[in-house]
Each structure stands twice: as C-alpha cells, then as structure tokens.
C-alpha cells in the first residue's frame, strides 16, 4: 500500500466525516434538549443547499465578481433563512406536541421531512441542480506523481466543522445561554421555576442546529457542486448514524462519530469494496449500540446537551 493513497483516503474520509459531523451536531443538540429525533434535520440541510445555489446565482446576476464576498454573503443569508426554517418547524410541528405521546413528535417530524422534500420538488423541479466550481485551489504534499492533496474547500469544511464544534462547546459550557440550555435539558420544569424561558431556549437550539446544517449545506455544495431534493435524506441518515455512534447528546461525540464514519467509509471503499461501505457503516453502528448502547462518548447523565 502506497503512503500517498492511504493519505489521500484519510483526507477523503476526514472531509466526508466533517460534513457528517456538522450535520450530526444538529441532531445531537435537539436530541439532547428535548429527547427527540428531529427527522426533518436532513431536509433542512437539503434546503440550505438550494438556498446556496439560489443566492450565488442571484449575486452573480447582480454582477458580484468577488468570490470570497459572494461566499460570505451566501453563507450569512443561508444561515439566516435556514435558521428561520428551524424556528418555524419547531413552532409549527413540535411545540404543539410537547407533553404528547412519545411517538407523536417522531411522526410529525417524518411528516415535515416529506413536506419539505416535496415542497422543494414541486417548487424547484426534480432534476439535479448544481453550481459552477468557484474555488479551485489545492494543497499538495509529495512529488509530481505521488502526492496527497486537499482542496481549499475541503480544508474549509474541516476547519468549519472543528470551529463550529469548539464554538458550540464553549457556548454550552461557558455562557449564560449554555447554562440555560443545560438546565432545560436536565429538568424543564425546574428550569422554568428558576425563571428560564424554556420555550425560547428550545427554539434557540433549533435555530443553532439549523444554522449548522446551513454551514454544511453551503460548504458541501461548494465542494461537490451538485445536489437534488433527495440529498437531505441520504446524508441525514448518515449524519444521524454519526451522532448515535459518538453518543447522541454529546457535541464532541457528534464530531468524533462523524469523522469515524467518514474514515470507515472511505477506507472501506478504498481498500475493500465500494458496494458494501454503507453496510459496513451500519453494521458498525449496530455493533457499537449493542455493546456500548450510549455511544462512544455519551455518558447517560453527564454533559448532555
């Protein structure tokens, strides 16, 4: 096995894993705070991919030439609109169901997921969409023939994911908002008695989760340049797997789970077989859950957000 091939597969896995991690953060935060699997999260990610393409197209129609400027504006817009999506979904589909049966929010989340997918399909058409490649810089290590490379977009994805995770961990651990989140998660009634507006905290968590999905959506769209209305489901289920693998409810766990899953996938398809990479990932998930039900980093009582 050549070092540069192994290295390249590690880079591939790291990038893919960072994407999973970014989306997994959304799952894990929502699960941490209200103990509910937000099945619509993957579709929020899909929405953000469309928003990215739309925003870039509008900007170029207005004659914006500077790529970094366009990307920053797009990222901001996408995060804002996707955040509104997160807020609205919580308000419409989950808040009325608080205190209802445990399965009710799950079903309504699946309903929202269907709703979003088909809304986009009806509004935007079902064909594949894409954006032109904007950033084509690349870092290479090695000689001309054997090298390990990482494109600038890939590096951006890895940095963004770790940055997001670090930022959110700091937010949860060190700020007043974070304390309120943790209090709400521990005991919602007690938190309310202590004067925390738990409704607002839960809404905030949904908005943050959606914004993370938006970062992922924008960067992934820049990286692959192609998407359709179904990407949310495919990527969502993987990210969800990542969140569970790392221990659902734990932020570093989501990141770890994502990266492990990404590495598993690319190493398995690189050196064993492309066909069965997903079977392998899901098998790992099942095994981890059988032998360590709370995931790798999830400790049932400690540090869940």
């Amino acid at each position: 096995m050549d070092w540069h091939i192994l290295g390249q597969q590690l880079v591939n896995g790291l990038t893919l894993g960072s994407i999973y991690g970014l989306i997994a953060i959304g799952y894990t935060m929502v699960y941490g705070i209200i103990g509910m699997i937000n099945f619509a999260h993957g579709d929020v990610y899909m929405i953000s991919a469309y928003l990215t393409a739309i925003s870039l197209a509008v900007l170029s129609a207005f004659g914006v030439e500077s790529v970094p400027f366009a990307i920053v504006v797009t990222l901001g817009l996408t995060m804002f609109i996707t955040g509104v999506y997160g807020w609205s979904i919580e308000r419409v589909a989950y808040r009325p169901l608080r205190g209802s049966t445990r399965l009710a929010p799950l079903i309504s989340a699946i309903g929202i997921s269907l709703l979003l997918q088909n809304y986009v399909q009806v509004a935007q058409g079902a064909r594949n969409q894409g954006i032109p490649s904007l950033i084509d810089g690349v870092f290479r290590v090695g000689n001309d023939k054997d090298f390990v490379q990482m494109t600038h977009v890939q590096l951006l994805i890895v940095i963004a994911s770790f940055g997001a995770m670090a930022g959110l961990t700091w937010l949860i651990q060190r700020t007043s908002l974070g304390r309120q989140c943790r209090a709400t998660q521990q005991d919602r009634h007690m938190a309310e008695i202590l004067g925390i507006n738990t409704d607002r905290i839960i809404s905030t968590v949904f908005v943050i989760g959606a914004a993370m999905a938006a970062i992922a959506g924008t960067l992934v769209t820049l990286n692959y340049g192609s998407f359709d209305f179904f990407v949310g489901f495919v990527t969502g289920i993987k990210a969800f797997t990542a969140a569970v693998l790392g221990g659902i409810g734990s932020l570093p766990g989501a990141m770890l789970g994502g990266i492990l899953l990404g590495l598993f996938e690319s190493l398995f398809s690189g050196f064993v077989n492309t066909d069965y990479k997903d079977v392998f990932s899901f098998s790992v998930l099942v095994l981890v859950l059988i032998f360590r039900p709370s995931g790798l980093l999830g400790r049932p009582e400690v540090e869940k957000v």
Binding site: I5, N12, L16, V234, S266, S269, T274
Partner: peptide, 20 residues
C-alpha cells in the same frame, strides 16, 4: 471493476482508488 450507488455525491474514495 467497481459499482457506485446512484444518488450519492461523494465518489472521492473511488476516485483515489482509480488513481491508485
């Protein structure tokens, strides 16, 4: 000789394999 899955967006691992 490999198969990929329709609907996926990340074939980087496969691309590296082809390179190898």
């Amino acid at each position: 000789y490999e198969g990929l899955t329709r609907g996926e967006k990340d074939f980087n691992a496969l691309a590296t394999k082809i390179k190898a």
